[in-house]
Design a protein around this nucleic acid. Structure first.
Lengths: 225, 225
DNA sequence: TCAGATGTGTTAACGCTGATATCGTGCAAG
DNA sequence: CTTGCACGATATCAGCGTTAACACATCTGA
């Protein structure tokens, strides 16, 4: 038999799979855990303390789940899969997720710092390959805020915000902006190459062939419409 | 003297300016409103019903606050100011905001649909000037989700996520991606012009706009730093 | 004018909740 | 052995949301 503290934690987590955190009574927890009521207060001091402890163990599962994702050689893609696993966790454990990310009262789970540290490491990997357009801390905070927002809205208003299209849209928007979109980079790279080539062409031909620019002008006007 | 229903609503809203929604007892509401306890249940059926009613009136203030923002001729900028006013409202009314956007239980405020409709109209104004890269509904849902996420994280973890830099970062990321960033448009436009011009030059058949060539040459030089 | 409907205020009570005090047990360490 | 301690059981408390029962005022329609 596990220790009393662990039994209380697992009992609360199990009840949390069904009911909301506020709809769970301490007596129901004690019945399921096979302990007396004072045990909760001996171990956690408070119902709030118990709930934050449960939230912290939830973060452990959450982080273990994320660490299980193998890292590829594309850190930006890793960022996207981390986002998706975050969303999957939220939709799979709605009450636990709300307990983790919208704590009531004063006591906040400490483990969110670890979550942010993990995300920060993933962001730094993007920085190492030169694909980061923000300070790493700001990038990690931005991604996590947007990610949590999508999840909480999907949980609170599933009929209006439950679509995964929203998650994908916001995901690509914020990650794309923070890391620099590949397509955008490609276009800019194309522009650079083209500009150099064109400038070279013009400097080589313009003195001898001023009509080239003129011909270019009317073609552009026609192409614009 | 106002009607009993209004007094209960304002009393709850006033208490909500101080305490959390769950920390407010029905008796305290009745004392402040000067009504008997059964009045709550006659008017709202439930404490939950009362809270959702309060959330709806909060949405009215929220929407009135947004409608007060004058529209400029730049709908994308209007989108950004709407984001900022949203954040200001959240930080100014934390408990009310959490009641509005993270409802507990089953009853959800209906007025969030109006909020989304208002945002949808603002997004459609961007569409009208050809600056929208997503379906309008998806764009509005994406913006609102990210906006709420930033606010809730700032309220729940102010020491980690309270910085307004995060709000600005996510705001520019999602709005920029959804509406099409101006700089990005400029770059892509440049790339397009360059491609056409270069092709035209090489084939010596398709003329181009000399001004465009000039602009891209200078822009390219500036961009190259 | 009267009768009833309607909205409102008062008191009291019910069951449940979180939290505490008190006491008894078993077990491991000294 | 006995001392200390972690754990379980019972009882109790104040506060909570909720409801019942009743009294009172105001307005409505005949």
């Amino acid at each position: 038999m596990a220790t009393a503290r662990e039994r209380i934690l697992t009992a609360t987590a199990e009840l949390l799979a069904t009911k909301d955190a506020l709809a769970i009574s301490t007596r129901a927890i004690c019945d399921r855990a096979g302990v007396g009521m004072p045990e909760i207060y001996r171990q956690f001091g408070d119902k709030q303390g118990l709930l934050t402890a449960v939230a912290d163990t939830g973060f452990e599962r959450f982080l273990a789940n994320k660490r299980r994702n193998p890292l590829t050689d594309d850190p930006v893609a890793d960022l996207r899969t981390a986002w998706d696993s975050h969303v999957a966790f939220a939709l799979g454990n709605p009450h636990l997720y709300r307990l983790m990310f919208t704590p009531t009262g004063e006591a906040k789970p400490q483990a969110i710092k670890e979550a942010q540290a993990l995300l920060l490491a993933a962001v730094r990997r993007c920085q190492d390959i030169g694909r980061l357009r923000r300070p790493p801390e700001l990038a990690a905070q931005s991604i996590l805020s947007a990610n949590v927002g999508v999840c909480l809205m999907a949980l609170s208003f599933p009929e209006l915000f439950g679509s995964l299209d929203i998650s994908q849209s916001v995901r690509d928007a914020v990650i794309g902006k923070v890391t620099g979109d590949e397509q955008e980079d490609a276009r800019i790279g194309t522009a650079t190459v083209l500009a150099q080539a064109l400038v070279g062409t013009l400097t080589a031909t313009a003195p001898a062939d001023p009509d080239a620019v003129d011909r270019l002008a009317r073609g552009q006007a026609r192409q614009a419409r």
